[in-house]
């Protein structure tokens, strides 16, 4: 299941990059990490673009900053913490799981499970419903039926 989720997230990875040749790190492993990190960081002055996609000068500064921190030996988490401390959580494209985002991350699953639960409930109710007999005719209905049958 984890592999599937991972594959799906890779499937829909951010499509293009604004990284310039001069910015790249010589160490390919560090550069790969820098690219992955930049795709999840928001360019604060753009419209819904990651710093990896953006041409804006601020995005370039942040790209360089991320690479600087990585070269200094920071872990991925330390780099994002560093940026969140300065720019707030708004800088993260993928909101962190916490009390304030519990409803966000939980909603799709809750909706799906709720839907399945409701369907199962409706199915069971109908099964038992099928077994029970329809309500007997009321006196009024019996009289009408008799009248109709006897003309």
């Amino acid at each position: 299941m984890r592999a599937l989720i991972l594959a799906l997230s890779l499937l829909a990875a951010a499509p293009a990059h604004a990284v310039l040749p001069g910015e790249r790190l010589d160490d390919p492993a560090l550069e790969t990490r820098a690219r992955a990190l930049s795709q999840d960081l928001r360019c604060m002055v753009c419209q819904n673009q990651s710093i990896d996609d953006s041409d804006a000068p601020l995005a370039r500064d942040l790209r360089l900053l991320v690479r600087e921190r990585l070269k200094a030996g920071d872990s991925d988490r330390q780099v994002t913490d560093f940026l969140v401390a300065r720019y707030g959580e708004f800088v993260l494209m993928r909101p962190r799981l916490g009390w304030h985002t519990l409803a966000l991350w939980g909603a799709p699953a809750v909706f799906l499970i709720g839907g399945v639960g409701y369907l199962a409930f409706a199915l069971r109710r109908r099964r038992t419903g099928e077994a029970t007999q329809p309500e007997p005719l009321s006196d009024e209905e019996k009289r009408k039926l008799d009248a109709a049958l006897n003309g």
């Binding site: 599937l4 989720i5 799906l8 997230s9 499937l11 829909a12 990875a13 951010a14 999840d40 928001r42 819904n48 990651s50 707030g88 959580e89 708004f90 800088v91 993260l92 494209m93 993928r94 909101p95 304030h100 985002t101 966000l104 991350w105 799709p108 799906l112």
Partner: peptide, 22 residues
Amino acid sequence: LTGAKISVGPPFFNWTFGPLMV
């Protein structure tokens, strides 16, 4: 409600929308 600013970007949708489509 709280004044907190967060971004919900492509990673969120890829993780939730994608698995529902399969």
